[in-house]
């Protein structure tokens, strides 16, 4: 107590000065409209810049939350985009129909391998989030694979960087379809086989998913043709293609749930092998 008192006595002049300065500022503020509005402007400016700083700081800590929100929003938009894509590619008479109804779920990639010949990913959504085996996994600019096994909170995905996985694709401008598979070297270099020779194609044409499987809906853009060869003997093209999305560098993916997969698979079983 004594020390506080001593400090007060020692610093009495600055204390007195600032108290009186405060009083005179109040006086100034009350007496003059001009100064009142100017002070108001300055205080607004300072509080704005202060709020700006704190807003930026708190924003930084909320980035993860914002990212998640954006991912959710993107998921909804992706669903809409896929649906409208599908419609645009059908003949006008079939406009209201889709190959199958689907739902989109967002997920984070927590492990991704791309150096082996058979690569897998692990995503952070599992059975609890409604993920099931054989669902398709896509990204915002292409496809990434098919769900292989599902645990409670996680799921493993067969990457398209896996030479065993064959994806049904077609040309965007032309309904000729073929099979996409990885060449096994560069993560974006793929090849497409079995496109019939009478389909005209050029370098730079876009490839989209064909919709002939129960995994992927029709019309997801995958990549573009970089080179092709005519194979006269077999009557098919062999096409080199480059993906839009590098599958070794994905962090967010969307899982597509086919709502009628059981019905389709049921019919498939009845077909003669």
């Amino acid at each position: 107590m004594q020390r506080i008192f001593n400090a007060l006595v020692q610093f009495r002049n600055p204390i007195l000065y600032f108290v009186l300065l405060g009083i005179s500022l109040l006086f100034l503020n009350n007496r003059s409209n001009f100064h009142q509005s100017q002070l108001h402007n300055y205080s607004l400016y300072f509080s704005q810049s202060l709020y700006g700083v704190s807003h930026r700081i708190s924003n930084y800590f909320q980035l993860k939350k914002i990212n998640d929100q954006l991912l959710q929003e993107n998921r909804a938009l992706k669903e809409l985009e896929l649906k409208s894509n599908g419609i645009a590619l059908y003949p006008s008479a079939l406009k209201t129909k889709r190959r199958f109804p689907f739902q989109v779920k967002a997920a984070h990639v927590i492990k991704n391998s791309f150096l082996n010949q058979q690569n897998y990913l692990i995503i952070d959504k599992g059975a609890k989030d409604g993920i099931e085996e054989e669902m398709a996994v896509i990204t915002d600019r292409g496809i990434i694979g098919i769900v292989k096994t599902v645990s409670e909170h996680y799921a493993s995905v067969i990457s398209i960087l896996n030479q065993d996985l064959k994806i049904n694709v077609r040309l965007k401008k032309n309904p000729a379809f073929g099979t996409l598979s990885w060449k096994g070297k560069n993560p974006i270099d793929f090849q497409v086989e079995d496109i019939v020779m009478n389909a005209g194609l050029e370098k730079g044409d876009t490839l989209i998913t064909g919709g002939m499987s129960s995994y992927f809906p029709l019309g997801i853009p995958l990549g573009k043709i970089t080179d092709f060869e005519r194979n006269i003997q077999s009557g098919y093209y062999t096409i080199s293609t480059e993906l839009f999305e590098d599958p070794s560098q994905v962090y967010y993916v969307y899982v597509i749930e086919n709502l009628e997969v059981k019905e389709i698979n049921g019919l498939n079983k009845e077909l003669p092998k």
Partner: peptide, 15 residues
């Protein structure tokens, strides 16, 4: 009849 400019300036200069 001025605002408070004399007060603030004089106070500060005294300090």
């Amino acid at each position: 009849q001025s605002g408070g400019a004399h007060t603030i300036a004089t106070l500060t200069i005294a300090f």
